[in-house]
């Protein structure tokens, strides 16, 4: 029993938690931007697949790692543009379009993968991002390695949260994005195009989702597998609700979920097989649902979320 608590004080546990959280942080921030502008983006799962592949392929074909990240973001933005075109000016169902984008992005990714690599016996590897310890800070016990001995992409994930929070709450652009999700007519009354704001938000958000996917192939692992996103995108949709559409709380949610996940694999090893492994795999999800119930009771969702805006319509 004591062992179960001791895990919580080991550096490797927290390192794992932050590492597992990183792709979720990117993608959750991406989804959050979309939803704050009033668009639910269910294309997230597919966009993460596309990003994972685009980033990895760029490096595999000889690009450097940061070029890979940029290409992944661009691929994500392109799917975002498609999503936004269908849901913003055309006002189509965001559920149907989102799921359509997920199916399109995953299939198109696999199609491209097969064209590029028709005959391989095992998926090729790339030289992925390596941990880059921050001097001095990474020496702090337990939390030092967790926060300051990670790959550059993890640092970027944390920077992204700061930037998203700052832009949303401290800049006129952020105000316009938030207003587009709450009261689009007010945005239009200011002479700002709701269509442009929402389209831009969906593209930027999708770019972040794609970088989240790229984290898995370029930092957490070093090769691309078709089903490796494995539902992480859907988790991020729940994390946005968990965070009450606020970047800081969503970050906490992502870390909490990842910590549960890192905890369950460690707990599995000390119970000696007395408890079925399925219960452990379930743990992060069950605990997240419980946390969601507690956290989101008073959450105020964006009032115009999922409501298409037609200029001049009353």
């Amino acid at each position: 029993m004591i062992e179960a608590f001791e895990i919580l004080f080991t550096a490797s546990f927290w390192v794992a938690a932050i590492r597992i959280a990183s792709p979720l942080i990117f993608a959750t921030m991406g989804e959050l931007i979309c939803e704050r502008a009033g668009v639910l983006n269910l294309g997230i799962e597919g966009i993460m697949v596309a990003g994972a592949f685009a980033g990895w392929l760029t490096v595999y074909l000889g690009g450097d790692l940061w070029t890979g990240v940029a290409i992944a973001a661009m691929a994500g933005a392109m799917f975002g543009l498609l999503h936004a075109t269908l849901t913003v000016p055309l006002g189509l169902s965001q559920h149907v379009v989102g799921i359509g984008i997920t199916l399109l992005a995953t299939s198109l990714t696999y199609f491209t993968y097969r064209i590029v690599l028709p005959e391989v016996t095992s998926p090729p590897r790339i030289a992925s991002f390596q941990p880059l310890p921050v001097p001095v800070l990474s020496e702090i016990p337990v939390l030092g390695p967790a926060l300051f001995n990670q790959t550059p992409l993890t640092y970027l994930a944390f920077v992204t949260v700061g930037v998203v929070a700052w832009v949303l709450y401290r800049t006129p652009l952020g105000l316009a994005v938030r207003a587009a999700g709450e009261n689009p007519s007010a945005v239009e009354a200011q002479g700002i195009s709701v269509t442009a704001i929402r389209t831009g938000a969906v593209m930027a958000g999708s770019a972040l989702m794609a970088v989240g996917g790229a984290f898995l192939t370029m930092s957490a692992f070093n090769s691309f597998f078709f089903e490796m996103i494995n539902g992480r995108g859907w988790i991020c949709i729940a994390l946005v609700v968990f965070g009450s559409w606020r970047p800081g709380k969503a970050l906490l949610g992502a870390i909490l979920f990842a910590a549960f996940d890192a905890y369950q694999v460690r707990l599995q090893q000390i119970t000696g097989g007395a408890v079925p492994y399925q219960l452990f795999l379930m743990m992060p999800f069950v605990l997240s649902i419980l946390a969601l119930v507690v956290m989101s009771r008073r959450a105020a969702y964006p009032k115009a979320l999922m409501i298409p805006y037609q200029k001049g319509e009353r």
């Binding site: 490797s12 898995l216 597998f225 694999v265 460690r266």
Partner: peptide, 25 residues
């Protein structure tokens, strides 16, 4: 023996995390 199942055939990052946990133990 530490035995773990990850509930997926294709999630190398998760398999890797699980393996890290076993090495830690």
């Amino acid at each position: 023996f530490q035995v773990a199942f990850i509930g997926s055939w294709f999630d190398p990052p998760k398999a890797k995390e699980t393996a890290f946990a076993q090495i830690d133990a």
